[in-house]
Design a protein around this nucleic acid. Sequence first.
DNA 1: TGCTGCACGTGAAATTTTTCTGTATTGTAG
DNA 2: CTACAATACAGAAAAATTTCACGTGCAGCA
Lengths: 358, 358
Amino acid sequence: MSDTRPKKSKLGLREIASVAHVSIATVSRVLNGSNRVDPAIQKSVLAAAADLEIDFLQRKKTKALAFLLCNRAMQHAFHSRILLGAEAYCASRNWELLFQSLDYPAHVPSKELLLPKVLQRHDLVRGVVLAGTNSTNLLELLGEKGVPFVVLGNNVMGEFTDAKCDVVFSDDVQGGHDMTRYLISLGHRCIGFVGNIGLPWFARCFAGYQRAMEEAGLAPRHSTVNSENEAEIGYLGTKSLLARGEPVTAIFAGNDPTAHGVYKALRDSGLNIPDDVSVVGCDDTVGSYLYPTLTTIREFPEQLGKQMVELLVNRIADPGQKPQPVTVPTELIKRDSCRRFQPSEEIAAAGALQGAMI
Amino acid sequence: MSDTRPKKSKLGLREIASVAHVSIATVSRVLNGSNRVDPAIQKSVLAAAADLEIDFLQRKKTKALAFLLCNRAMQHAFHSRILLGAEAYCASRNWELLFQSLDYPAHVPSKELLLPKVLQRHDLVRGVVLAGTNSTNLLELLGEKGVPFVVLGNNVMGEFTDAKCDVVFSDDVQGGHDMTRYLISLGHRCIGFVGNIGLPWFARCFAGYQRAMEEAGLAPRHSTVNSENEAEIGYLGTKSLLARGEPVTAIFAGNDPTAHGVYKALRDSGLNIPDDVSVVGCDDTVGSYLYPTLTTIREFPEQLGKQMVELLVNRIADPGQKPQPVTVPTELIKRDSCRRFQPSEEIAAAGALQGAMI
DNA sequence: TGCTGCACGTGAAATTTTTCTGTATTGTAG
DNA sequence: CTACAATACAGAAAAATTTCACGTGCAGCA
């Protein structure tokens, strides 16, 4: 290779040990076991190592990252596409990727969580990609343990200040904003949002929707259903919007599977898409399978996965750098589920909805 | 633990080495590096080890399996669900799971394939789960290298005799048979199959269809499109069936995404589902999103994943046992895309199809 | 306050892994 | 058929890891 340094004397644990005034065994522990070593000693060993060799990481045999899919069955193919993106980037950079799913409670102090055994293997797993749905307690725990990690920001529960760790977002807030503006530009004024705002990915989409509505001087109206089942959220949310007599001409579903539930509810109520009601979704997972095909917000999960690994690898290389947030844009995909709405139709539309309520 | 043996003297590499009359280093290599050791010596070391200790595998630190997703973007969520099933079973048995995707050419002799580096790490990866689409050259290579593996039988290209390795099948042949019989029981006589028979998963489904048709004394008629894009296969295959003037009253799509293409083609031709033509699919990935909802064959990918890992773990524990094939059954899911067909309608149906051809 | 037990953290020693080196074997060209 | 080269492979030695046993400090308890 292109190693220009003359390798003065054999560089090994022995040398580090003598510089740091500890035993070889301790150096070995610091360098990979990492467990059961006094932080002060660990620090001095690391310093000694840094003195002697720049790239101790290179020296190691296996470089693996863990991909933790948390609290979520791999629905919608969305997360599996994130995994693929992550894997592709890993492969290109000669990292292995361990896949593991993990369920943990959201409302338990970080002390009481126990990490999967893989992550204990500091000599194998050098960092963690957190996909799925996470809550701040796990982030804290990883922070305390000093395990480098990146998290998919869209799906973090609870108050989440992104300043404290590397995080990748899919810009669904902007996507929701764009989409709402699009519906407004088509002439819609009464646009209902259906989702479960208790879940962060719905909340973010809703935030974009809400902002766009307020900017346009329109009243946001939403129907939130406290469920984890997305088709159910869409179905019940729509039924409830209709039952309240909201004169909606368009419904914004918080994601594509939810839109599927919306479709079903509208059909059950005898309403036609898009003639009676326009529908839009978000995430572009199953929108193209629906009928009529769904106007939605395309996200780029492979890109999210790639970005996450990229941030993580950078952090491992330079643990000191300050946390970095990355946002991946979204794209508005226009399909057949929307139509232009003439304000003059409003009375007629209201009539149709009245009919549907019977 | 429940170790009843008295552990006569410290059991270690030293003891094995002396029994096998080789150096400790060689024993170490056999036990994990495995590379660069004469097969004869390897065998004798293994024998010596077996003499001394039953469970040398237990001794090892990391037990990881590799999940190789081959030659396939993770479409349809089908393979990601296999992964989830595999991971769940791994976790329950304290195995780690490395995920890696891999593309390789099908028509290259096994000598010329190069395995991903992870698999070289015999000390880490103890076996391989082959998902995605595989061809026999990779199977041969793994066999030669002595790497334990299981393969998803449905997606193996080329002549594949399952006698030579552990293999798990989803019983889509039976599923295709059941489905065809179901269509026949609804009164359909002229049933077209749409797919790409060059691809093994279509071929298997088609085999079931063909057998059922022949058993019923009906003529199989299929339209195969040489493409990898499933929606395209469905669309073009259907268009071509119609263009040939086949008086089909039902179409069997080789999988759900293909059925989506079939839907589109029928709609473009002005035909109603199921009034003019009944449609069925296979795999139950997106069938529930289609409109009308698709009658299809449910498969159980999580179960497939679990079974694969189970076979693999058994083989690792006992490499001598003879190859074992496992078949996971399928389930017929009846939805809205089929209707009963009265033979008397045949002339009318033919008329509708004629109209569609214009 | 002093004792006891326990958990942590360390170095020495034992064990294992990896590198290095010498030898044998196989293939290839003359 | 010989000479040379390239490669494979085992063992010795070096390096790294893990185990073991011991000291230290702290909490619980008398």
